[in-house]
Write a protein that binds this DNA or RNA. Structure first.
Lengths: 251, 251
DNA sequence: GCGAGTTTGTGCAAGCGTTCACAAACGCTT
DNA sequence: AAGCGTTTGTGAACGCTTGCACAAACTCGC
């Protein structure tokens, strides 16, 4: 993984630059942001760490520690100002400018992603669609024309695109990645079920439906194996461990 | 998160039951499995930890530790038997039986997921599609008819479905979740951008495209901030006044 | 202005996860 | 059978993450 340690940028002036957030925190901020937007729409002006944590599905101590990394934007005895916190998180995540995203591969999945309207509200705008299939070139999706992948470099440079989504078949993914990287893209979201190799400094995140299902499958398998085998306790102290959950109303 | 500690099942007999794998390991096994399948197709009979680790994009020590949790299935001086390891991982993940999965919400994204053919090879089979929109009922996707969500409970019970995918709009997701849980589903993959509340014992995994992009955005933002501000030396003058150089990224 | 009640921010300890480094185990060659 | 090069499995150290628990800081009511 491209795990670059960045030692400096610690004692930045009063400005609003980067406290070098822990990766785990970064991964949760978007969830907080979504919950905050929801709270704002529901009419909340302030929210306590407890409330926001519940909305985001995390522990409140964890939430407070996460937010404390951004600086002190809460008021003791009151909570957090929703609008202020939204602005702060959006700033840290770099969402103040609506970033342009390129999407490569307008097949089954790519088509759905391109048509997904929910981006606008979340800080992104798909500004270019690419495909290799000549039959698809020119097709309009959501008011955007599909372009041939040969135009990728030119368009990416012209539009200063730094983030791309790969929704191609596996066999094309690495080639497309190389194209993107050479064109200056430095963050990639990969939906193709394969490992992409990229130079240092390029971030890749991966989404693989089958992997998610397999992880769930493990837990299912484990559950059923545990209920099949009885409890297998050597000594009597079964009391502490709450039995497998009485709820199982299932038939 | 449903973080249930399960203390027992530690000292299982020599059989082939559950060594209580670390969650991080479980999350990586599917990636190993995919890489192994690829190696098998490419003609490899055995593979070293170094080789498999490279294919899966992880550290080789981590890979060995992960695999060691499954038991000793490698041969020192040689490596791992590819076919044996595939069988072993599939067994641990519970993929030996092709699990049936229900998909709820056949909109833009759901349609794409339903049409995705790559499941068969990865241990799953979509066996039921549901939607609330009357116009969609009866539509055939990949030889499977869309059914009304009112039939959900009956079908899930009849087909003994334990895993479901939610691809509905946000406003329907929690309601669908409650239906699924009541029908006996205990693992859910959620594509709706919201937090689902479920009883203990039900596993939820979430995929949110916008969140992934926002995490990438953070890194982009951070990179550009770091290259814009040089090194923040004691002498302030040059530091803040950097020319607005569009993109100084090397190619 | 003061006390009571809340809620944040954080020091600290425990738990996980990762990585290094190396002994034990294996195949192959002689 | 013995030595050599290779590779696994794992003990141990380190760093990251989580969660508790509490002092500091705030509001509100009087």
């Amino acid at each position: 993984m491209s795990q670059q340690r960045n030692g400096q940028a610690a004692g930045v002036p009063g400005g609003a630059v980067f406290p070098d957030l822990p990766e785990a925190t970064v991964a949760r901020l978007p969830e907080y942001l979504r919950s905050l937007h929801h709270l704002a729409e529901t009419g909340f002006d302030t929210v306590s760490s407890e409330g926001l944590a519940a909305a985001a599905g995390v522990n409140s101590a964890k939430l407070r520690k996460d937010l404390s990394h951004l600086g002190s934007y809460g008021t003791r005895g009151v909570g957090y100002d929703v609008a202020l916190l939204i602005a702060q998180i959006e700033h840290v995540l770099g969402l103040t400018q609506r970033r342009g995203v390129a999407l490569v591969g307008v097949g089954n999945l790519g088509h759905a992603l391109a048509g997904y309207a929910g981006f606008g509200n979340r800080g992104f705008r798909i500004v270019a669609l690419f495909d290799a299939d000549a039959h698809r070139i020119g097709e309009q999706i959501n008011g955007l024309a599909v372009r041939h992948i040969d135009d990728l470099a030119a368009v990416v440079t012209a539009e200063a695109i730094s983030i791309a989504v790969i929704a191609t078949p596996v066999h094309a993914a690495q080639r497309v990645t190389d194209l993107l990287v050479r064109a200056g893209v430095s963050s990639i979201l990969n939906f193709a079920p394969c490992v992409l190799s990229v130079p240092d400094g390029v971030h890749v995140r991966k989404v693989d439906l089958a992997i998610e299902l397999q992880i769930l499958s493990f837990h299912e398998h484990r559950k059923s194996a545990l209920t099949t085998l009885p409890v297998h306790v050597g000594h009597g102290r079964a009391a502490l461990a709450t039995p497998v959950n009485g709820e199982a109303v299932a038939t």
